[in-house]
Design a binder for these strands. Structure first.
Lengths: 167, 167
DNA sequence: ATATAATTTCAGTGTATTTTGAATGGAGCA
DNA sequence: TGCTCCATTCAAAATACACTGAAATTATAT
């Protein structure tokens, strides 16, 4: 159903998804939409990727929630169709926001919690280590907050970094 | 076995681990070592975290492979003991290296592969989208390579970003 | 060399997550 | 209002992943 040459991409993106905290089906659908010239509807997606409609439906909902795909309607057609966000940068930005929220913020929070509770005099080595961790994560948090404020900011930061690399 | 106040941290770090591409046991052991004043041996770790020695052994091996813990020996003791990398920055750096290799590089590779095979004239929209994705990922790749070259470089980049945030 | 103590491995088992598909819900149309 | 066509939900089944523990291996001491 899917061109052979695209299959590899879809499956790689799928395996990656697992590492990215997205599940395989979600990532495969996302990849399918990225490599689909036309908007695709639920049936096409489910058939092409050999998965149930139910699963496809759930995944599409979640992908929409991430903001990396959009629902579109062809006039005179009752069915919903979907397209991938065409702007790579926007996609990257959205994924970044979601991942910070899921992965980074809770880590920082738990370190701060522990640091606040612990007695600095007891377990000095542990306290010092946690303090170091908290400092570092706080610096990174500030950078990420600035970056992820809006797309312009992310672009600005990326340009600064590009400049640095070029040196 | 573990102080109540540290338990929360260990469990949070453990759940996080799943998102970070590390499994729960690995992350719990890592957290345990971070919050352990003394080097800990296999038995202590397995007992404290209520897991089998076998599992603990595998996790310790993997954590050593990541470079975020080290094996130490107390003289006159046959057992191996382990300590967490005390420098937060180094830890962050090591995790970054590993994650780039696992998550980022294969994604970029698969996009490039697809781009090389596809005919730019057919499926124009898809090609444009992939081209955009490849450009963006390549920029990021350059930055990451520079960053992860060595710790000094990472520090330099972080400082630049700190400067930007402070503006 | 042998005994002993510790670590590592891995097949089997258990647990958690993902996927299915039948039932349910809901929008448009006559 | 009832009919048709999709989309969505969710309990049950399938699958993937993590963990255990006994056996094999390695390291150290005598």
């Amino acid at each position: 159903m899917v061109d052979k040459q695209y299959e590899q991409f879809i499956e790689t993106w799928g395996s990656m998804g697992v590492l990215w905290g997205i599940n395989r089906s979600m990532a495969r659908i996302h990849a399918f939409l990225i490599t689909s010239e036309e908007p695709a509807d639920l049936d096409t997606i489910a058939d092409s990727l050999k998965m149930s409609r139910g699963n496809a439906s759930m995944c599409l909902k979640e992908l929409r929630h991430w903001g990396v795909i959009q629902r579109v309607h062809s006039p005179g057609d009752r069915r919903d169709s979907y397209v991938a966000e065409p702007d790579a940068f926007k996609m990257f930005f959205l994924i970044g926001q979601e991942r910070k929220k899921r992965e980074f913020d809770p880590a920082l929070h738990s370190v701060r919690l522990l640091l606040a509770e612990g007695d600095p005099e007891k377990r000095k080595a542990v306290h010092a280590r946690l303090r170091g961790l908290e400092r570092l994560l706080t610096s990174i948090d500030r950078v990420l907050n600035k970056c992820l404020q809006d797309e312009k900011m992310t672009k600005a930061v990326l340009n600064i970094l590009k400049g640095f690399v070029a040196r």
